[in-house]
Design a protein around this nucleic acid. Structure first.
Lengths: 198, 198
DNA sequence: CTGAATCTGTAGACCGGTCTGTATATTTTT
DNA sequence: AAAAATATACAGACCGGTCTACAGATTCAG
């Protein structure tokens, strides 16, 4: 596969990400995607022969991996669970603010749309969320949580943050995210960064 | 307006609720709605002259009010905040299980789809969530929370439950909802003292 | 009491446009 | 020249929305 082919493929995924994050799966058409990516229709079906679902799956996977890699690298640098969740909350808050509250979690909208009707895409969304949860749970284990409790606590923290993104999108305000961050700290039993350094 | 007219209108709203809760806003077409409701297209535009958005707004409002009325009646009977959230969690869990995990929160999917692109519907979703939050916050005030802290805690609890519905839908399991319920109890039970001293 | 006018609501054909996906021709790269 | 990739025309289905026709009840003049 040549350089140009890779670039077109990358632009298609990037365009798909941009659009589905703001409009969801059904709200985004292939015409819109190829226009956004500056690629012709034929190229789309050359690079993604299975069509829209394959393209959306690639976009979700890439977006999920970016966030997962960020969390994993923070954890590798020794960030504690409170710092991990704070950073994730901040990522979502920043995305919302910079997009005028059109893009929150890159997975959530599609996840809810397809969970009941599109099993392959549901599985992709589930894997992304589980990968995020695994990183957080792993960190919690090094802080003394037993494996089962770490998984539960990580799931609760993730639910809190995802729900806060939903409320923040609907209210057009980052306040729910900031309140969620405090609640997550409380649930996980860690002190805020300000208190730690004091 | 005759009896039959009211019935057709009610069937249209009921059909719309059924479909958008499982498939979202963009995933549900008017052909599907009129088929589900057993009503002709002309009746749809007679009862809802502004079209799809007016119909969806009516469906969201009705679904939101049903849940809100349930919470309000429980609160009037003296249920405490833990019982309110437990019941709301149970409503969502039951809906998911009975629909084979296709219907969770009746608002969430549409809320995320339209938050960035359809201001009137976004406002409807926001009002539903705020009405739920108000009931819970009101109960928290009678339990000793100051108004500001009650609103914050109610928002955190709502975020936790909504996020748990998302994760439960994607995982096809009620486990996230059960874990969320424990976390909500923890948040609401321990925060008053800290909030008062803050 | 009748029968035409009116109102409510039903019924579905039809509009332009967009949807996902296919087929085929052409250009670029190797 | 072969392979990789681009480019576009096209197909059939469906989209939301508009339009006209008409069925059944109600009203009201005579």
């Amino acid at each position: 596969m040549g350089v140009k082919g890779e670039e077109t493929r990358a632009r298609l995924i990037a365009g798909t990400r941009t659009l589905i994050e703001a409009q969801g799966y059904f709200g985004t058409g292939l015409n819109q995607i190829v226009a956004e990516a500056g690629a012709p229709r034929g190229s789309l079906y050359f690079h993604f022969p299975e069509g829209k679902d394959q393209l959306v799956a690639a976009a979700l996977t890439q977006a999920g991996q970016e966030v997962g890699d960020l969390l994993a690298s923070l954890a590798a640098e020794g960030a504690d669970s409170g710092a991990l969740t704070e950073r994730l909350t901040e990522v979502f808050a920043e995305r919302l603010a910079r997009s005028d509250y059109t893009k929150g979690c890159p997975i959530a909208t599609v996840a809810l749309e397809v969970a009941g009707t599109n099993e392959p895409l549901r599985a992709v969304c589930a894997e992304v969320y589980e990968s995020w949860q695994r990183v957080l749970a792993g960190r919690l284990e090094t802080e003394g949580f037993r494996p089962a409790e770490a998984a539960t606590a990580a799931g609760q923290a993730l639910a809190l943050m995802e729900g806060a993104v939903l409320l923040a999108s609907v209210r057009r305000s980052r306040e729910p995210l900031d309140h969620a961050q405090h609640a997550v700290r409380h649930l996980l039993g860690t002190q805020p960064a300000a208190a730690r350094t004091a």
